[in-house]
């Protein structure tokens, strides 16, 4: 079964790489199979990691008399079922209920978490080296890095600040901000390319090693 699995994986890999030549039936087959398998995988995981432990098990416990608190789970199950109102044109407005709950939940959970993780922590990380500078424990190069960090953050934010016209000093600050952004995008691009190349090496290694046994 393992050998069969390697052959299946290898043939599907080649089907996908055949797209490098041009669009063809082998690629289309693999592409559509990938969509079907991925959606099926997502459904199975969301049912077994969401619906079963959080709804069906407590509900079953309530029905068998173990713990009646599980009956509360009928409410989210009922709300979730309202999603299927989408399939009936007369009752399509009912879909707003579960969407409103999920949107409200997402917005409510975002505010404190984003404030804490993305605003307070990032600001603290930016100005924290100045405490070390004040204590005299930061090297000369460290001081330079700390100043560069603050300058980069301020200039990048200035570039995205549209409440004032970008003229005079603001224009120059935003120009420096663009330079920092370009370095950021260049780093992101470099890392992305290397990530993709690593995947390519892994697939070629699989084809030549596991499948064809040409390399050990």
């Amino acid at each position: 079964m393992e050998l069969f699995g390697i052959w299946v994986a290898a043939l599907l890999t080649l089907c996908i790489y055949s797209f490098l030549y041009q669009d063809n039936p082998f690629y289309r087959f693999a592409e559509h199979l990938f969509v079907g398998i991925s959606v099926g995988y997502g459904i199975v995981l969301s049912i077994h990691q969401g619906l079963v432990p959080f709804a069906l098990k407590p509900l079953w416990a309530a029905l068998t008399g173990e713990s009646l608190s599980g009956l509360v789970k009928l409410i989210p199950i009922g709300v979730g079922l309202l999603f299927f109102a989408r399939l009936s044109p007369q009752h399509v407005w009912l879909i707003r209920y579960p969407i409103a709950i999920l949107i409200g939940f997402g917005a409510g959970i975002a505010i404190p978490n984003v404030l804490r993780a993305n605003i307070f922590e990032q600001t603290r990380g930016t100005i924290e080296p100045f405490a070390a500078m004040h204590a005299g424990t930061l090297s000369g190069f460290g001081v330079l890095e700390a100043i560069l960090m603050v300058a980069g953050v301020v200039c990048t934010l200035t570039y995205f600040f549209f409440s004032v016209e970008h003229r005079g000093p603001v224009k120059w600050l935003s120009k420096v901000g663009i330079a920092f952004l370009m370095i950021g995008f260049g780093s992101a691009f470099g890392n992305t390319v290397m990530g993709r190349v690593a995947l390519l090496i892994q697939r070629v290694d699989f084809l030549l090693g596991d499948w064809l046994n040409l390399i050990s």
Binding site: V114, L115, N118, I119, Q122, T123, G125, T126, L148, M149, V150, A151, G152, V153, V154, C155, T156, L157, Y159, F160, G177, F180, L181, I183, G184, F185, S187, A188
Partner: peptide, 14 residues
């Protein structure tokens, strides 16, 4: 420089 640009973006997006 990359981290400072990312921090600027993160602060704005947040």
């Amino acid at each position: 420089p990359n981290l400072s640009a990312r921090r600027g973006i993160i602060l704005g997006v947040s």
